[in-house]
């Protein structure tokens, strides 16, 4: 079936089987940032933005992307570098395998929540598992990033 959609801002017209999952569809089109950590919608590694909302690409049919805007980390490199630097400065990126999904969801959170508390941050990101870091370093990185963004003035270089 034909899927007309925007991938990272570029209009694409592609073929997909009715049961192709968005995750596999995106990887087969070179979006290697999109990872699979489970088959049960529990890990958050495959998070992408669908019309601006973070979703699990393992649970979305590729054909449902028709007419929609799909954004992966490949399309948010500048933002990923900006936030990622704060993560890196804690050493909290560790093995990195969960990073793309995690960074996607942090960026989604930045858009959705205004000035989130630490509790709100933890709840928003609860669906992003990480087995290396123990999460504390991720939280430090996010809080530093939020402080930095605040000091930069609201909305500066937001995606």
């Amino acid at each position: 079936m034909k899927v007309d959609f925007w991938l990272n801002g570029v209009r694409r017209s592609e073929e997909a089987q009715p049961d192709t999952l968005l995750l596999d569809f995106l990887r087969s089109r070179g979006c290697y940032s999109v990872k699979r950590g489970c088959e049960t919608a529990n890990c958050g590694l495959c998070t992408v933005l669908l019309d601006g909302k973070p979703v699990l690409s393992c649970s979305v049919l590729a054909v449902r992307a028709d007419g929609k805007k799909v954004v992966t980390l490949e399309g948010l490199q500048k933002e990923a570098e900006e936030f990622g630097a704060f993560l890196a400065d804690e050493g909290a990126e560790q093995c990195g395998f969960c990073n793309p999904g995690f960074v996607m969801n942090v960026l989604a959170m930045m858009k959705e929540l205004e000035d989130p508390t630490e509790e709100e941050i933890q709840e928003y990101l609860a669906g992003n598992l990480c087995r290396c870091s123990g999460f504390a370093g991720q939280t430090r990185g996010i809080l530093n990033y939020l402080r930095y963004k605040k000091s930069q003035g609201k909305g500066a270089s937001k995606a």
């Binding site: 919608a41 529990n42 958050g44 998070t47 669908l50 909302k53 973070p54 979703v55 699990l56 649970s59 979305v60 969801n105 989604a108 959170m109 709840e123 928003y124 990101l125 609860a126 669906g127 992003n128």
Partner: peptide, 12 residues
């Protein structure tokens, strides 16, 4: 609802 897996799951 807030305990159900994660925000991305609940967006789906």
């Amino acid at each position: 609802l807030r305990h159900i897996v994660g925000v991305q799951f609940r967006n789906c």
